[in-house]
């Protein structure tokens, strides 16, 4: 098929079918449960800690709600995004149902995009359930609430989740086998969570003689930028740059403001996230397009 053959109606039809399929899957309910537990739990923790600090006469907002919410989301969304995506196309190839899908007037690009949209909506639905519970907890038990912070956090988390669905769907389209796709997402997860930052530490050790810059010292620019190449780092950087009030004083030098070079800006971190979203879909599609079913 020729270049970029997309029919938005096909994409929507495939996404809707995928959603219907997922709505009856236990996985969706498991995801929703996890988000509710972790985000609701983080909100309760926030209320509890605020209470504790207030009793001891500390400043209000000594702990940040956003930072507490970010912790579970920063590992849940990558894990669940990959899990939601990795079977999307490979599973259909394995069972042969892809022959139903592609005997209909859909292009293979429609299939990749439709799967991406459908699975992203699945992940978002679970995320929204968790955010809603967190919101209810905050509003019910706490007298101060920054709606803007919460909206920025929700929006960036949606993008961050979509990136990992794209990675999962891309790997699924690339491998066209559930087994290989599973190996792919586990490998990627391990690399991004455990290996990626080790390289930064190693480089700093080679260049500067210590694994990390001294606490409080201004780290080299490359050391600040490097983690942002990773979607987890880019998400964190974007969040901190867009919500500067949230940044803890101790690590402020990692989130430079106005006068920093463009590649250390929050908006550039968002661009990096968008690249992480687009590239797996494009590469996955190209491999899938050339594949004999």
């Amino acid at each position: 098929m020729s270049s970029l053959d997309v029919d938005p109606r096909s994409v929507a039809t495939i996404a809707r079918k995928d959603l219907q399929d997922a709505a009856r899957s236990r996985v969706l309910w498991l995801l929703t449960g996890l988000f509710v537990i972790f985000l609701g739990g983080a909100a309760f923790l926030f209320v509890y800690l605020e209470d504790l600090f207030a009793q001891e006469g500390e400043e209000v907002a000594a702990v940040s709600l956003i930072l507490l919410l970010e912790q579970p989301v920063a590992w849940l969304l990558p894990l669940l995004g990959l899990l939601v995506g990795y079977k999307s196309l490979a599973g259909e190839v394995d069972t042969g149902s892809v022959k139903i899908l592609l005997s209909l007037p859909h292009s293979r690009l429609d299939a990749v995009l439709g799967k991406f949209v459908g699975r992203t909506l699945v992940l978002w639905a679970s995320l929204f359930a968790g955010l809603a519970v967190a919101l209810v907890v905050i509003v019910a038990f706490y007298d101060e609430f920054h709606l803007w912070d919460f909206l920025v956090f929700s929006g960036l988390s949606m993008l961050f989740g979509a990136v990992f669905v794209a990675l999962g769907v891309g790997i699924s389209a690339m491998t066209t086998s559930t087994t290989r796709a599973a190996v792919g997402i586990v490998g990627l997860f391990v690399f991004l969570i455990f290996v990626f930052d080790t390289i930064r530490v190693g480089l700093h050790y080679l260049l500067e003689g210590t694994p990390w810059p001294d606490l409080g010292a201004q780290p080299p620019e490359w050391f600040v930028f490097y983690p942002r190449l990773n979607p987890m780092g880019a998400y964190d950087a974007a969040l901190m740059s867009l919500l500067p009030d949230v940044v803890p004083q101790a690590v402020a030098q990692y989130y430079p403001s106005a006068d920093a070079p463009f590649y250390l800006s929050g908006w550039f971190a968002v661009v990096i996230l968008l690249v992480w979203l687009a590239v797996p879909l494009v590469v996955g599609y190209l491999r899938f397009e050339g594949h004999d079913l």
């Binding site: 079918k17 219907q20 399929d21 009856r24 899957s25 069972t95 042969g96 149902s97 892809v98 022959k99 139903i100 005997s103």
Partner: peptide, 13 residues
Amino acid sequence: GVLPEGASTYDRL
């Protein structure tokens, strides 16, 4: 209209 061979339907639909 295609009736593919060896294609399984979608179990949950």
